[in-house]
Design a protein around this nucleic acid. Structure first.
Lengths: 199, 199
DNA sequence: ATGCATTTAGAATGCACATTCTAGATCGAT
DNA sequence: ATCGATCTAGAATGTGCATTCTAAATGCAT
């Protein structure tokens, strides 16, 4: 007893991510997602209770992959590996990285996502932040700088600087050049700088 | 002959920018802009032909301020001053910087802006890129690195890294701490690194 | 073979928004 | 004092979207 489904949840999630990567959040309308999958719009609601549920499900999965890459090296005090992991992830899955690293969940959602998803996303975020705090603790022990500044420098080195280096390539949807890793390494080594030779 | 206007164009532009800064692009609906100014929605159309025209006008003005800060030092080979100018601008006008540095024009517009505005924005963009190219030329003369890499490093140092350092504070709407300038200087000096003391 | 829970299929609904429209107010030039 | 261009004021319109609804199809358990 049951009719077999032609489309499953993952089809819709993948379509939503692809549409956002190509055309921004507004491009991932229910009609566009359905069209991309080849399903009627109504079928989506047999899998997801709302558009926000699809977007949040996609986000949760991307965040899971991101945290799996970043949290272990951070907790182990290997900040350089974490930054490298970020770049490697972007290389391997440029579509998802483009969405996760360049967009903001709040801006993509229209309404509120299901509570369970919201909690899961917050928990994963907290998981990453705990690993990051461990890293900051370790850095703070080796310096006299105020903790605020240590944390800001670490956040920049591990997250924001690699993302900034990737940004042009994420926007263009093209493979980042090899020197991105080189610059990340230089920054973490702290003994060579990007753009030597500037006036 | 004429009734005097109670609201002028700038009121609407300022309201739109403030709304985007607070709640993202979707928060700047025509109704919300009118409400913020205290005007009826219809009055907006006596000044602007469309929502896209308001957004594009706001963008053009923010970009003008940004280019005025960045292009002269870049053209003069003073990359550090350009990066410092970016941070100083964000400090002085955090609301506009928040919108201009964190959002994307395409994503904010709904339809196409008036052609004249589109052209003006492209021209200002080109003005900045020309100054940037001059800077890259100068950097390229002093190194054996391929020009692609020199350009990427310069773009990072001048634009993306300062923006990444400001990002947490732009998102929070809070004044950036003084060490942002210090880190920018260190990166441009090329002889000290953020987050010394990391494992 | 038949029943029926689940699905496809896509039309109908309702809502939020940009835009347009109608009425009436204002004030400088005459 | 009056005219009329330009404005305020806010209701009406049209569109695009998320969501819901109705009908028909499907295929396993019996």
């Amino acid at each position: 007893m049951v009719r077999l489904a032609r489309f499953d949840a993952e089809d819709f999630v993948d379509a939503a991510v692809a549409l956002i990567a190509e055309g921004g959040g507004a491009a991932a309308s229910m009609a566009a997602i359905a069209r991309k999958v080849g399903a009627p719009t109504g079928s989506i609601y047999h899998r997801f209770e709302s558009r926000a549920a699809i977007i949040a499900t996609a986000w949760q999965a991307m965040q899971r992959a991101f945290v799996d890459r970043m949290a272990p090296p951070l907790a182990g005090g290997r900040a350089r590996d974490a930054a490298r992991g970020l770049v490697a992830w972007a290389r391997e899955d440029i579509t998802r990285a483009r969405v996760f690293l360049l967009y903001d969940l709040e801006a993509l959602l229209d309404g509120a996502p299901p509570e369970a998803l919201r909690r899961s996303i917050v928990a994963q975020q907290e998981e990453l932040e705990e690993a990051f705090r461990a890293h900051v603790d370790e850095c703070a022990r080796a310096t006299t700088q105020p903790r605020d500044e240590v944390a800001a420098r670490a956040r920049f080195l591990v997250f924001d600087a690699p993302i900034a280096l990737l940004r042009p390539h994420l926007l263009a949807g093209s493979q980042p050049p090899a020197f991105v890793e080189r610059i990340v390494d230089e920054m973490h080594a702290g003994d060579a700088m990007p753009a030597r030779g500037a006036a």
